[in-house]
Write a protein that binds this DNA or RNA. Structure first.
Lengths: 136, 136
DNA sequence: GTAATACTTAGCTTTATGGCTAAGTATTCG
DNA sequence: CGAATACTTAGCCATAAAGCTAAGTATTAC
C-alpha cells in the first residue's frame, strides 16, 4: 500500500513540470499517442517518454500499446487526490480561524499547537506576527 | 511578472516535499517560529531553512523576523493557484466529454490536437485556450 | 559583560531530474 | 521482402535538490 504521503509526493512532483502539465491538459481533450503528444514539444522522444512514465507512475494517465502505437489517456479521477489534500488543509485552517475568532472575541491563545512542537511560547509575549522591523 | 506557468512550477515543487507539506499543515493551525517548526522534524536548522525559503518563494508562507525569532505564517490564499489550475483542467476535460458525446451521437473525430504549450494560460487573464476542435 | 538563543551563511556531498544521442525492436506499408 | 514508422533501451551529462557540519551574527538572558 503506497502511503498517502508518497502518492502526494509523486503527484505534486509530476505536476511540477510544465511539459507534464501540458500533457495533462492536452489529454483532457481526449486520448493521444506518444508521438502526437511529443510532436509539438521540441523534445526528443526518449526524453518525452520519461515524462509519460512519470505521469503513469503517479496514476495521472494510463497508457496502452496497440500495434506499434502507445495511446495515452488521462485518468481524471486521480486529480481528486489534490482536491482531497486541499480540502484537508482548508478544514485545518478554518478550524484555526475559528480559534482565532474565539481569541479575538473571547480571549484565549488562538493557537499553540496540538500534537508536536512543544510548549515554547512566543518570546514577544503576545501571539502576534505583525510587529516591528524587517530583515536584511 | 512571473509567468503563470512558473508560479505553478514553484507551487507544485514546493508541495512535492513531505517536510514542506508538514509545515503548511502545521501553519494552518496558526503562526510559528522557524525553531518551533523544525523541532519535531529531525532535520538540521540550516536544512530546514531551505524549505522555509522555498515555501516563501512560491508565496505559500510569509515570514517576519522580530528580534532573533523568525515567525512564519501561512498565506492561505495562495492555494487558490492550485484550485484555479484544477478548475481549468476540469473545464477542459468536461468540454472533451461533450465532444465525445457529440462523437458518439453525431459521428466526428472526438479529438485531434490543438497545439498548446502548457496550461500556460493565466486563468485570471483573458486569453482563453479556445480549443477550436474538430475540422476535417 | 558574558552566555545562551535563534537563526544565518558558507561550503560540501549525494541523489534525483531532465535532456540528449546512438542503437535497438516491433509493426505496418509498398 | 525491404523500408519506414513508432516507440524503447542504454548510456551519458549538466543542473537542481535536499541534507550536513562548521562557523558566523544578532538578540536576549543572567
Amino acid at each position: 500500500m503506497a502511503k498517502y504521503s508518497d502518492q502526494l509526493d509523486a503527484m505534486f512532483t509530476a505536476l511540477a513540470d510544465p511539459t507534464r502539465r501540458t500533457v495533462v491538459t492536452r489529454l483532457g481533450r481526449g486520448p493521444a499517442s506518444v508521438g502526437e503528444l511529443a510532436q509539438p514539444l521540441s523534445i526528443s522522444l526518449p526524453s518525452f517518454m520519461k515524462h509519460v512514465r512519470t505521469l503513469e507512475a503517479c496514476g495521472l494517465i494510463r497508457t496502452r500499446k496497440t500495434g506499434r502505437v502507445r495511446t495515452c489517456v488521462l485518468n481524471q479521477d486521480r486529480l481528486g487526490l489534490l482536491d482531497g489534500w486541499l480540502e484537508e488543509q482548508r478544514r485545518i485552517w478554518e478550524a484555526g480561524t475559528d480559534r482565532l475568532e474565539q481569541f479575538v472575541t473571547g480571549g484565549q491563545q488562538p493557537v499553540e499547537d496540538t500534537t508536536d512542537t512543544d510548549g515554547a511560547v512566543d518570546p514577544t509575549g503576545s501571539t502576534r506576527i505583525t510587529d516591528t522591523e524587517e530583515e536584511s
